[in-house]
Amino acid sequence: MANAAAAVRPSRNQKKKSHIKESLGSCIFDVVDVIVILILMLIVLVPLVHVLWASFSKPALYAAHEGLLLWPEGFSLESYKAVFRNRNILTGYGVTIFVVVIGTTLSICLTAIAGYVLSRKDVMWNHLITVLIVFSMYFNGGMIPFFLVVKGVGLNGSIWSLIIPTAVDTYNLIIMRTAMAGVPAELVESAKLDGANDWTVLWKIMVPLVKATIAVLVLFYAVYNWNAWFNAMLFIHDKAKEPLQLILREVLIQNDTSSMTAGSDTDAYLISETIQYATIVVATVPILAVYPFIQKYFVKGVMVGAVKG
């Protein structure tokens, strides 16, 4: 820090001379900055808007269109009807919602408990436990041993294989521990003098005090659970138990829209691309709809986690 201040000192003499030039440079800087950010925003938004418009377009008109859509080509809900004709999408939605709700609840409870215990001082084994847990973040058994362990405990093929093996995320646990360690010890002590035990202190005092962090971690776990597909590919072998993302992979990447397209082959060919777009919209809208409402929490929460260690 001191170096930084010292390093700019030589320019003091030039202050007067370069004053006008600098303010001009500063202006150019501002303009370029805004332009670059605007371009970035366009790069993010244009593909998304294209997907949205394409999903509402008439398949035949869309097929004839060249380049990115700035407006839907005709208007048709045909693609959406086709998406919802696919029963797998609906069951996938059900599975995903189950995993998001139950999985996130379980994760957040376990993370809160572990975060609380590990944030206590004067607990003899805490240091060792923390070291082991952090170690598991940098070194892990890898895909195949993990697969065999989950199979070994009998979760293979069960919907719980999408919840239990990934229940606690170490990084989130550390964020929780850091937040709880920041709560003044007097609050906990005084509650204990009133006869509360650690379990009551955790839920009655600690959780309300760190609720901003908890909101962020709920978001992290929920987004993870909503987007996860790899473990489902490893452990789920029954179409009825596949989560949405795995179904999406079949529809979108392995290009299997056969269950959704009815009628002649050319129709199927024309409609399949707009179906893919409609599927993307159906799968993405829920999480994007929630996102603006929780955004104000996570910037704060990430800051909590940004504290080293």
């Binding site: 376990l110 408990i113 572990a114 609380y116 215990v117 590990l118 436990i129 082991l132 847990i133 598991s136 070194f139 892990n140 058994g141 890898g142 195949i144 041993p145 993990f146 065999l148 362990v149 989950v150 070994g152 405990v153 239990i164 093996p165 990934t166 229940a167 606690v168 170490t170 650690d198 379990w199 955790l202």
Partner: peptide, 20 residues
């Protein structure tokens, strides 16, 4: 309180390490 989490770590994080 932390027992279930320790069991979780033993099985799903350290289990695979021994599985190596």
């Amino acid at each position: 309180m932390i027992m279930p989490i320790l069991i979780y770590y033993a099985i799903f994080k350290f289990g695979p390490m021994f599985g190596l």
